[in-house]
């Protein structure tokens, strides 16, 4: 099955310059940077769901924002269906075109809707922006269809409401309707359920899953909750400090994690059953800030099985079979 590649990311870097103090400028210190994304490569096939997991601050949101052009990449290549984005040559597509073919769902449904716009305006906005509507009739139809597909039925009840009149789950459905109204090929979903109640979480996950099946849309599913991953991601990429440290088919990675970080992350997901409590591998401390990266393997200061070699050698991803890769000196 060599399905078409929707998205290819090669060696993506995004460094944010730190604000420099006058004193340091005077001393001619090197400008410090936050290495939010530090050499990330991955690809997403048509109709595939790739989950991106990792602790807070590891760079997940920055990747999504860079992909859609909200941040300018410091280095690397982003190919959408084989085409570069925003370049001058004929083989690249414009940023605006990309923003039609790829859509974002942000984390916070309370913040991502304009409080002074009606649901009708919000959902039809992408159509207006890309000049895709024939007339009011057409606009109305398409908004209704999108809302109903997102599970807001009957759509007419919602058209004239304002976001503050909806619950969190309903708002996230509106966001999804607004994204799907353009019939995109790629959906970047940045923690779409982490701010929602448990019972609503399941509904939104099911909705995304249904859209994937009915529309064949590819999804980059960003989360820090590994529990949700098993349910609908085809492949799983684990991030640590701006790098992907392990990637592979979801079932494979969950069953047979190779990177110590993945193992730790999996072990701390609480099971919904007191009988299944097990030993957790709790890493001490927090994700260090990505300004002064450790030498060698960037995980070694927190790694429970680190060796002497880990201080010196920065491991790169090695293939372990079936597309399962891990960046650890112990992974063979």
């Amino acid at each position: 099955m060599s399905a078409e590649l929707i998205l290819e990311v090669r060696n993506l870097y995004k460094h944010f310059p730190m604000r420099q103090s006058l004193l340091n400028m005077f001393r001619r210190r090197r400008q410090e940077v936050v290495r939010a994304v530090d050499g990330v490569s991955f690809e997403i096939k048509k109709g595939e769901v790739l989950a991106l997991v990792g602790e807070s601050g590891c760079g997940k949101t920055t990747i999504a924002r860079t992909l859609i052009g909200l941040e300018k990449a410091t280095g690397g290549e982003i190919l959408f269906k084989g085409q570069g984005v925003g370049g001058d040559d004929d083989t690249s597509i414009s940023l605006k075109k990309l923003r039609q073919r790829a859509q974002v769902v942000f984390q916070d449904p309370y913040e991502s809707l304009n409080p002074r716009a009606t649901i009708y305006d919000i959902v039809s906005e992408p159509l207006v922006v890309h000049d895709l509507i024939k007339d009011d009739q057409d606009r109305h139809e398409r908004v209704k269809r999108a809302l109903e597909e997102a599970g807001l039925r009957p759509a007419d009840d919602y058209l004239l409401r304002y976001p503050h009149e909806l619950s969190g789950g309903q708002r996230q459905r509106v966001v999804i309707a607004g994204a799907m109204v353009l019939d995109p090929e790629l959906l970047l979903a940045d923690e779409p359920v982490s701010m929602l109640d448990v019972s609503i979480r399941a509904e939104i996950l099911n909705l995304l899953n249904a859209l994937r099946r009915s529309r064949g849309v590819s999804i980059l599913f960003i989360t820090h909750d590994l529990g949700t991953v098993g349910y609908f991601a085809d492949r799983l990429a684990v991030m640590y400090l701006g790098r992907i440290v392990e990637v592979g088919p979801t079932a494979e990675v969950l069953k047979n994690p190779q990177h110590p970080y993945t193992k730790a992350l999996l072990s701390v997901v609480p099971a919904a059953n007191p009988k299944q409590r097990r030993k957790m591998v709790i890493l001490s401390g927090e994700t260090p800030n990505p300004i002064n990266l450790p030498s060698g393997c960037r995980f070694h200061p927190r790694c429970p099985v680190a060796m002497e070699a880990c201080r010196a050698t920065d491991p790169s991803l090695v293939e372990l079979g079936k597309g399962h890769q891990a960046a650890c000196l112990l992974a063979k």
């Binding site: 019972s199 399941a202 099911n206 249904a210 079932a251 059953n273």
Partner: peptide
């Protein structure tokens, strides 16, 4: 229903893409 709708890592779906249980309404 609450338990069935909880996406649990340790109870991965038997077949891929199985829907989670939901509680309709509010």
């Amino acid at each position: 229903r609450l338990l069935e709708s909880f996406p649990d890592l340790n109870r991965p779906p038997d077949s891929a893409n199985r829907d989670l249980a939901t509680i309709p309404g509010t």
